[in-house]
Computed example of a mutant assay.
Amino acid sequence: MGVGGTLEYISELMSIGHKQKKRKQLQTVDLKVRMDCDGCELKVKKALSSLTGVKSVEINRKQQKVSVTGYVEANKVLKKAKSTGKKAEIWPYVPYNLVAQPYAAQAYDKKAPPGYVRKVENPTNNTSTVMTRYDQDPYITMFSDDNPNACSIM
């Protein structure tokens, strides 16, 4: 056993009696919280600022968005926001350019702020199964019998 092994052995012996705490990562939690007036905004800000580990709380009432930065867990922040009596959920939107098909029925949301769509993993599309065979060459679909919008040669 070398010097490195001895030091590891001693450190393990010392840490057995102590309970090690898991450190939280600094993160930003975005929530969608229904707020109508200055009083609602103040109530939410005061409640979220009282959480331990919170460094800052930013509110955009126009987008109904609350951003909490600090050493916090998302579910605890959400629970605290709901305790104010306001309707709250984890921010469900992403910028529309990050979604493959932003105007698919699952992604498009009329209530979303400008430039945002709902976060969806894989929107299903009826035409995707027909088009997968012809993904490599777009000229094949242009004159295909399988494509109802194809050109016809007369």
Score class of each variant (00 low, 15 high):
Q136A: 11
G2R: 04
D137H: 11
N149P: 01
L98H: 12
L31Q: 00
V120T: 12
L98R: 14
M142W: 08
T129I: 13
Y103D: 12
L26D: 07
R23Y: 08
P138T: 03
S49I: 00
G4E: 11
T52P: 12
K80D: 02
N147H: 05
L26Y: 09
T28G: 04
G70R: 02
L42H: 14
N122W: 01
M154C: 12
K43R: 14
V29E: 00
G70D: 00
I59A: 06
A88K: 10
H18S: 13
V94W: 04
I153G: 07
I10H: 09
D30R: 11
N60F: 03
Y108L: 15
G39M: 08
E73P: 09
K80Y: 00
P102Q: 06
A105P: 06
A107N: 00
G70M: 01
M35Y: 03
T6V: 10
P92V: 05
Y103V: 06
T129C: 13
A100H: 03
K45H: 06
W91P: 00
D146I: 05
Q106G: 11
Y9H: 07
T69N: 09
D38Y: 06
T132F: 04
F143W: 15
Q136C: 07
M142Y: 09
S11A: 10
V44Q: 01
E89L: 07
Y71T: 07
Y96G: 03
L26I: 07
T132A: 13
Y71N: 08
E121C: 05
M142C: 09
S67K: 07
Q106R: 14
N122A: 14
I59L: 15
D109V: 09
E73L: 15
K87V: 09
N75W: 07
K110A: 15
E58C: 04
P102N: 05
C151H: 09
M154Q: 13
E41H: 06
K62G: 00
L51K: 06
C151Y: 11
S15H: 08
E41G: 12
Q25P: 13
D36G: 13
M35Q: 03
L31P: 00
S144D: 12
T84G: 07
M131W: 13
V120P: 01
P148G: 01
C151E: 06
Y71Q: 06
K62I: 04
S56E: 14
T28A: 05
I10G: 08
Q64P: 01
I140N: 10
P138M: 02
V68H: 00
K80F: 00
Q25A: 15
K119P: 00
P114Q: 06
Y9C: 04
K87D: 13
G4I: 06
K82I: 09
N149Q: 12
K119N: 15
S67H: 01
L48D: 01
S67I: 03
A100E: 15
N149I: 03
G53W: 00
Y96D: 01
D38G: 15
L42A: 10
G53Y: 01
K86D: 13
E73A: 12
Q27S: 12
L31I: 02
S152I: 09
Q106M: 14
S67T: 06
V120Q: 09
K82G: 04
K65L: 12
S83M: 08
Y9M: 07
I153C: 14
C40M: 03
Q64L: 03
Q101P: 01
Q20W: 06
T129K: 15
Q27H: 08
P123C: 05
A81M: 11
Q25K: 15
V44M: 04
Y93C: 05
Y103C: 08
